[in-house]
Design a binder for these strands. Structure first.
Length: 423
RNA sequence: GGAGAAAUGGCAGAGUGGUCGAAUGCACCGGUCUUGAAAACCGGCGAGGGUCACACCUCCGGGGGUUCGAAUCCCUCUUUCUCCGCCA
């Protein structure tokens, strides 16, 4: 959620930057500013009437004590009038506040100046490429066929137990999965991220805190009996650790990592592009998250990108990094870098990580602040990224490491798997 | 799941209808003293809104109510603790 004060002070700039998302924001911004003004006027009026009412109540107390009952009763009548006015003003104030908030929920984050204009993923900017695309034998198979051939992932069994999009990993497949999780977590903790194990269900307030609610409600599985939501990403529980928090400046930066399964309804997405591991309802992901001082956050973003690069270099997977264009940029993000690994057998790029700086957008809604040098509370910047999403990394490994007689295991993973081939 | 108790500032802990945003202690920050530190003493020390700055308003787990006036009374929800039951 953007800050109204910012919109007021940087109106034209905000509108111009939002245009990169192909949004004509002028009307919304104008409305927000005028609703805020109305809010302040009403608030001031209400405050002064309340001040008067408070004073009267105190006077009544004094009059009762000194025995001036008649005078006290006369004041009571006056107080009743004020109460009526207070009620009306409060209603008006609440409506205005609600309108303002609803409007602010609809305005996405202001893109960073580096964000290229553009409509679709085709307009994303490739900023880095690494690794040669391996020459595979002519009969190279996509990962879902390899998974079947070597009996390491059973999609049909998942259908039986739950439904489509809930694969069953078994044998060396399960072990490889566990090895990847441990390897990622180890890399992250080595880089100074503190490991967390987080709840996989969150309450409504947490959903609002990170912006999944109210708009993207349909993305999450909802347990209505207890009004809880299955997490679509560890970002939700991890970021909500800091809801309603005031940190000391010296606490910054905070670096967290955690592994969780992720649950996404993905309603309406079916077809060739979602085969195999490409898109699932349940998948595993290791997340990194940072809480940063505002003037450090872009340095931190760079650092996170380098960190993810380091992991992919070690895994020796061909990948590229994209700077997302305005049209593809997530609602809450100011600047996002996507990592894609090349799926050789499918001949397409698969997104395996997304690293974003949200600046104060999340922090504002979360009320996550730090006390600055002037002892004033200031909003923190939040950043997060995947390091990494498991299924597509797994798909990348299976496809790119396939040989005539099986699948090789990337060298860095062998200490974790305990085997060097799947065959 | 059943019965009972509780929820107050960073922590501990007073406060049961009026001048209480809230005693006191600890922690923390600044100062005096000291070669330095500790101790002692003095001062400061929650958040949000609002203002150029004050004033002022709101907040004692959340929501609602009674009252001229609520941390204090009533209703409700949530959470925690104790006991019982169940259980990995």
């Amino acid at each position: 959620m953007l800050q109204v004060a910012y919109l007021r002070d940087h109106k034209e700039e905000a509108i111009a930057q939002l245009a990169k998302r192909n949004i004509e924001a002028r009307e919304m911004v104008d409305n927000a500013i005028s609703l805020d003004e109305e809010r302040r006027i009403t608030q001031t009026e209400l405050d002064s009437i309340k001040a008067e009412a408070n004073k009267i109540s105190k006077d009544i107390g004094g009059l009762f004590k000194s025995g001036a009952i008649d005078k006290a009763n006369a004041l009571k009548a006056k107080s009743a009038d004020l109460k009526e006015t207070i009620k009306q003003l409060e209603n008006r104030l609440n409506t205005t506040k609600q309108d303002l908030e609803n409007l602010l929920y609809k305005i996405p984050n202001i893109p960073h100046e580096l964000v290229p204009a553009g409509n679709t993923e085709d307009d994303n900017e490739v900023v880095f490429e690494h690794g040669d695309i391996p020459k595979l034998p002519g009969d190279a198979l996509p990962h879902w066929e390899l998974a079947k051939k070597y009996d390491i992932i059973d999609f049909e069994l998942g259908n039986k137990i739950t439904g489509s999009g809930f694969p069953v990993y078994k044998g060396k497949g399960a072990k490889l999965q566990r090895a990847l999780i441990t390897y990622f977590l180890d890399k992250n903790t080595e880089a100074g991220y503190t490991e967390y194990q987080l709840p996989h269900l969150v309450n409504e307030a947490s959903g609002f805190g990170t912006g999944q609610l109210p708009d993207k409600e349909g993305q999450m599985y909802h347990v209505s009996e207890d009004n809880l939501y299955l997490i679509p990403t560890a970002e939700v529980p991890a970021t909500n650790i800091f809801r309603d928090t005031i940190l000391n400046e010296t606490d910054l930066p905070l670096k967290l990592t955690g592994y969780t399964p992720c649950f996404r309804r993905e309603a309406g997405s079916y077809g060739a592009h979602v085969r195999g591991l490409n898109r699932l309802h349940q998948f595993d992901k290791v997340e990194i998250l940072r809480i940063e001082h505002p003037n450090q956050s872009y340095e931190a973003l760079k650092d996170m990108v380098e960190h993810v690069k380091g992991i992919l270099n070690e895994l020796k997977l061909p990948y590229r990094i994209l700077r997302l264009c305005g049209g593809d940029l997530g609602f809450t993000s100011a600047l996002t870098y996507d990592f894609e690994v090349f799926s050789t057998a499918q001949n397409r790029w698969l997104e395996i990580s997304s690293v974003s700086n949200f600046e104060t957008f999340q922090a504002n809604r979360l009320k996550l602040r730090f006390k600055n040098k002037d002892a004033k509370n200031e909003l923190c910047h939040t950043l997060n990224g995947s390091s990494l999403a498991l299924p597509r990394v797994l798909a990348g490994i299976l496809e790119n490491y396939q040989t005539e007689d099986g699948i090789a295991i990337p060298e860095v993973l062998i200490p974790y798997t305990g085997f060097s081939h799947i065959n």
